[in-house]
Design a protein around this nucleic acid. Structure first.
Length: 288
DNA sequence: ACTATTTCCTGGATGC
DNA sequence: TGCATCCAGGAAATAG
């Protein structure tokens, strides 16, 4: 289940491998999952563009594209000059991996695995494939190049903004952390891990938390995300990055997936409750 | 204007 | 061994 650290790892890997390459052909399966964009629109928007950068916004992978005809001109001109001359909008390709989505760079001869929903042929002769068995993933294009990903970036928001964002909300703090319109990128694993480190139970209403507790949570969220990115994310179920490598943060999980096991701090059994339809793990002793 | 619940999807784990 | 059932969860859609 790719969350911010996994998507960050994948985006960095893809940037390293495909930026500078150009899209020649686009194939989408009949079942290609799309979001706001129709398959035909995705294909026509992508075809004939070059990939300038691949980056992450929340849990989205963003491909910044340049119309192929403009590639040479743009890179040669200074920013100031290109502002005057560049007129064609730079579209973006947005990929959300959902639960089981994977983006892989491979050779055309490589086996066409089940649940392949998109194949992008690159000028270098390689292919970029989108594979998603559960089909919770979404593909879309933004022709204007100003994709809005929702709330603030957890690693960019400062302490004061973070406190303001959550204080006074009646919803359980975990629900607020998972709300992408507030904070973008935190999912189930990192919400549980952040709350454990901050000593706050998932069900606690945000409005009952002091400024100090919210400030602590801000630090915990950033700490957990940074550590996870450093380890290449968490490989639970079948997550692998753009190079097919597994992450290692799952070995550092203190509560997620540890129901019934002993808390690493106090030895109390980890509890599991269901919140917004998902498993929430916490230590009843360390978290209040 | 809110938040809570349901729905979409398939593979793997579990149960009888 | 085989078949049914349950469970995982991101976020849009729907209900409250």
């Amino acid at each position: 289940m790719p969350e911010l650290p996994e998507v960050e790892t994948i985006a960095r890997g893809l940037h390293k491998r495909v930026s500078g390459d150009c899209i020649e052909e686009v194939w989408l399966s009949g079942k290609a999952p799309t979001f706001k964009s129709k398959p035909a629109e995705i294909a026509t928007t992508l075809r004939g563009t070059c990939i300038a950068t691949v980056r992450r916004m929340g849990k989205h992978i963003v491909f910044d594209l340049i119309p192929a005809s403009e590639k040479r001109t743009r890179s040669r001109l200074s920013k100031k000059t290109s502002k005057i001359h560049a007129s064609a909008p730079s579209p973006q390709w947005i990929v959300h991996l959902g639960m089981t989505g994977r983006m892989v760079v491979c050779e055309p001869a490589d086996e066409n695995v089940k649940h392949t929903h998109a194949v992008i042929s690159l000028a270098s002769g390689r292919e970029l494939r989108f594979i998603d068995s559960r089909r919770f993933g979404r593909l879309s294009v933004v022709s204007t190049g100003n994709f809005e990903a929702g709330g603030v970036e957890p690693l960019e928001v400062d302490r004061e903004q973070f406190v303001t964002l959550f204080q006074g909300r009646k919803t359980p703090i975990k629900s607020a952390l998972l709300n992408q319109k507030l904070l973008r990128g935190v999912g189930n694993i990192y919400a549980d891990e952040s709350l454990f480190r901050a000593g706050i139970r998932p069900r606690r209403r945000a409005s009952t938390l002091s400024r100090e507790q919210l400030a602590h949570l801000h630090g915990s969220v950033q700490e957990v995300l940074k550590e996870a990115i450093a380890l290449g994310g968490s490989s639970v179920s079948d997550y692998v990055d753009a190079d097919g490598e597994e992450g290692f943060f799952q070995l550092k999980h203190r509560v997620y997936g540890r129901e019934g096991e002993r808390c690493l701090s106090c030895k109390a059994p980890i509890k599991r409750v269901v919140l917004i339809g998902r498993s929430s793990h916490y230590c009843p002793n360390c978290q209040k």
